[in-house]
Design a protein around this nucleic acid. Structure first.
Lengths: 338, 338
DNA sequence: TCTGGCACTCGCGAGCCATGAGTGCCAGGG
DNA sequence: CCCTGGCACTCATGGCTCGCGAGTGCCAGA
């Protein structure tokens, strides 16, 4: 097992490297951190850390840089989450409170995260599956054409066209609208299928076709919208990646364009708290030299979606984790209020 | 005035430079294009073109590259728009026809444009001001709380909460819904304010407050939504910018994050056809080394929004213009159908 | 187990030079 | 008057050497 001092050496290496972007040597370490030992001792410790795979040297006569494994240890054991200061928290709250609708909340959150962390921010829209139905509306656009509008408790609105197998009268429409809402309003999306199962029964034979078409469209909407949307921002921060960045930035940009990839990325994190995936821990190849810090957020006790940032593995983990956690908390509050 | 041959020399320079990314010299020019004259003659022409500001040399002993002014002349006089081939057109149409709703149309358009041009694509959502109202729906969420849903002919849906000054009965609601739709359905957004002016009059005194609240919310929606949305994609193509790209890419990414900047960018183009803004012709500083190719598109004869691409000034203008024009045409078709 | 000392490695930047692409200019010919 | 071949000149580029110095590993002694 690694001695206490060796862990401190690792911590110092991570901190210095994150700060300077340059490989850190034994001498510089003893100067900047008072470890109470000489460079030679530190060298021995570094050799041990390298044997264990926590640090590596880019070329023979250079200092050491942390490996993914080194960052992992740092995050797990050596560093906490740096809480936001009170003024920062107030600023976050003020900024988010100005939002007028759900799109705006998400847009503001992305901007905020990107600015606070100076990294690329990713925010998932609140998921429909965990949401509840506020209202279902049916509009008649043409004799055999309806529009179905679904309104969720998070303020999201989804609409679908429905082509009816047969003309559908206004009276039937009002009837269906009333029955539908009395069944599903206030209920969770996941419960809806069971709740509407026998809804077509009371209708006249001629209307049943349309009713079941409407119902299946509704159910489809629930399922389809599980391909959840998300918003990203702060891509300009990619230029902070480092000197070799032309090679690194391209796959990252490509990955960021693939919503599927990002959703999987966020989805993988199962922890209730802040999750950090470092370098090769990310399944997607293009993101092998990035770290992803993510956390769930939600309007109640329950997480309805995730948000996070993507940055270089060489990032300020405590600060980033603190910012991500704080933003998630306040977004949750805002959603609960509205 | 520039002789015919000099224009051909300029055209050849632009084409070669776009192809090779390297300054082009007199000898290479005569070899690759059969101009029928010797390198020495070309040199004289080049000197003249340089005097006029159409080309420049990065350093003394290097070839020439086109200036913004050179590209401008090329686009205006020397190059046409390269039409898409039939298979390309079919592919565009097929790809866009798979779209299920407006969001999907825009998303697909962005992807398509980015792929065809290998550049950054920007697509503006169809504007509300030029659209017409398909339907206005009013839902009662609570005794004194309504939801207003606005559906446009382009398939866009906007919703707003309305807090009523007094409870509003179901009968009044149905009445208002009917009157409202009979007035505005099928009408242009710009005409709506005049059309609903006296709509509150037939109502009972106790309801008038609510009616006028609803109306003003509706009008607000029209105005607010002039802050139009847009979608961008293909940012990974920024890596094609060239060798010096770290310096260039950053301001571009920053500009792309500012929707306001992009909207202004697209808005500036007034031509009915494809508009090209080259390098410093772009008002925004960060985009001084990029060119923007944009065009309006719309579901009828009229343009309801713009789309375009942002790329390096050294781009294949004829091909890009062709792709942009073709995509706009097919998006218009798709919108008209739905 | 820590420390000081010492020899060794090797990436980096400076300086130097040859190369060659490309230019401008000029004098001669159609 | 315009085009052409020739010629001298410029200068960025790439290969090369070389010294510097940061950083290491190892060892002997406290």
């Amino acid at each position: 097992m690694l001695s206490e001092r060796r862990l401190q050496v690792l911590r110092a290496i991570v901190q210095d490297y994150v700060g300077t972007e340059e490989p850190v040597g034994s001498k510089a370490l003893t100067e900047r951190h008072n470890l109470g030992v000489s460079p030679a001792t530190v060298r021995n410790d570094m050799a041990a850390l390298e044997d264990e795979g926590f640090i590596a040297q880019p070329h023979t006569s250079a200092g050491r840089i942390p490996t993914d494994k080194g960052y992992r240890l740092f995050v797990d054991k050596l560093a906490g989450v740096k809480p936001m200061t009170a003024p920062e928290r107030r600023a976050i709250q003020n900024f988010l409170e100005g939002a007028v609708d759900l799109d705006d909340v998400v847009a503001r959150t992305v901007r905020l995260l990107a600015q606070l962390t100076r990294q690329v921010a990713v925010v998932q829209y609140p998921s429909l599956t965990r949401s509840t139905v506020r209202h279902v509306e049916l509009l008649s656009l043409a004799p055999a054409r309806l529009m179905l509008v679904l309104i969720t408790d998070t303020g999201r609105v989804e609409q679908r066209m429905v082509d009816c197998p047969a003309p559908f009268g206004e009276a039937s429409l009002a009837d269906l609208r009333a029955r539908l809402n009395s069944r599903v309003a206030g209920r969770r999306f996941t419960d809806v299928p069971a709740l509407v199962e026998d809804l077509a029964e009371p209708f006249e034979a001629e209307d049943r076709g349309t009713v079941s078409t409407v119902l299946s469209t509704l159910l489809e909407t629930l399922v389809e919208e599980n391909e959840e949307r998300l918003m990203i921002g702060g891509t300009a921060n990619l230029t902070r990646f480092g000197h070799d960045f032309p090679l690194v930035i391209r796959p990252v940009l490509e990955a960021l364009e693939e919503q599927v990839v990002l959703l999987k990325l966020l989805g993988e994190a199962k922890d209730p708290g802040v999750t950090v995936r470092i370098g090769h821990e990310n399944a997607h190849e293009g993101l092998n030299s990035t770290s992803v810090v993510s956390v769930g957020y939600g309007s109640g006790g329950e997480a309805v979606a995730k948000l996070g940032v993507v940055g270089p593995t060489r990032m300020d983990y405590p600060g980033t984790m603190g910012a991500v956690r704080a933003v998630a908390r306040y977004v949750g509050q805002i959603l609960a209020e509205s």
